[in-house]
Simulated scan of single mutants.
Amino acid sequence: MVLPVPPHVTVILLDIEGTTTPITFVKNILFLYIEDNVKEYLQKHWEEEKCQEDVDHLRKQAGKDSYLDGFVPIPCLSENNANLDQVIQGVVDNVIWQMSTDRKTTALKQLQGHMWRSAYVTGQVKGEVYEDVVLALRKWREAGIKLYIYSSGSVEAQKLLFAYSMEGDLLELFDGHFDTTIGHKVESESYRNIAKSIGCSTDSILFLTDLTKEAKAAEEAGVHVAVVERPGNAALTDEEKSSYCLITSFSQIVLPSKQ
């Protein structure tokens, strides 16, 4: 199957997990790194301004999450005679809880992004992309298509993955990055915000994602969509398969011929 791109599309917007990058990389490498190293990271960087900002954001998010089942509070040093070890453990427990429930809060993503920077820079982690991705990205760029990333992971985390990828530094291929600070991926307004930020109409954008709820939100905003089926991605229902254009490789996307 091939997916012809409408002639008026000038932007391709890409999800990461399950679209450019295997879900197994995110869950088994990136997330596991956070779980294994978050306590040591906090202990080492606690006095640094960036770390304190991350903790402050997490604590504010915790205040909003107090109604949720299994909620994990983050104490302050001034509360109930809590000592530093108890506060750090509270942050660790909150982070692990958020990750276990697949929360995608900006506060969590920012801390993760800062931790991953250290892992990428030191070579402990290298970004992974599917085999068909780099060739397609270069081909699209050569054709004049602008390329953007829209992921629930922070912009910093996105840039790290592509800057320190197994295929080398791929950042030059992208014109920009969006995360949940522009809006949540299941809300149609987010895609209008992205189009406005880029300076184009939503009808000029093709969005590639593995999740139909994101595809639905994008379509409602007037964005063209295709759902990517990759090994390990969530199985699609028959209804979902009949409702969306499906691709298994970026090589199936066909740009219009230049006259």
Rank of each mutant, 00 (worst) to 15 (best):
L58Y: 13
L58V: 12
L58P: 08
K60D: 15
A62Q: 12
K64S: 13
D65I: 04
D65F: 06
S66W: 09
Y67L: 10
L68H: 10
G70M: 14
F71C: 07
F71T: 05
F71L: 05
V72R: 14
P75M: 04
C76S: 13
L77F: 03
S78V: 12
E79L: 01
N80R: 14
N81L: 03
N81T: 00
N81D: 13
A82C: 13
A82I: 00
N83E: 12
N83L: 01
V87Y: 02
I88C: 06
Q89L: 10
Q89M: 09
G90T: 04
G90I: 06
V92P: 11
V92T: 03
D93A: 15
N94V: 01
I96A: 08
I96L: 15
T101W: 03
T101Q: 10
D102V: 01
A107E: 12
A107V: 12
L108T: 04
K109H: 10
K109P: 06
K109T: 08
Q110H: 14
L111E: 09
G113L: 14
G113V: 10
G113K: 13
W116N: 04
W116R: 10
R117Y: 08
S118K: 13
S118Q: 13
A119I: 08
Y120C: 05
T122Y: 00
G123N: 02
V125R: 01
V125D: 03
G127I: 10
G127C: 12
E128Y: 04
E128Q: 14
E131V: 02
E131R: 09
V134G: 00
V134S: 01
L135V: 03
L135E: 07
L135D: 06
A136H: 00
K139D: 02
K139V: 00
G144E: 11
Y148A: 07
I149T: 05
I149N: 04
I149M: 07
S152G: 09
S154W: 10
E156W: 03
E156G: 12
Q158H: 12
Q158C: 13
Q158M: 11
L160K: 09
L161K: 08
F162W: 11
F162M: 12
S165I: 07
M166S: 15
E167M: 12
E167L: 05
G168Y: 11
G168P: 08
D169L: 11
L170A: 12
L171T: 15
E172Q: 07
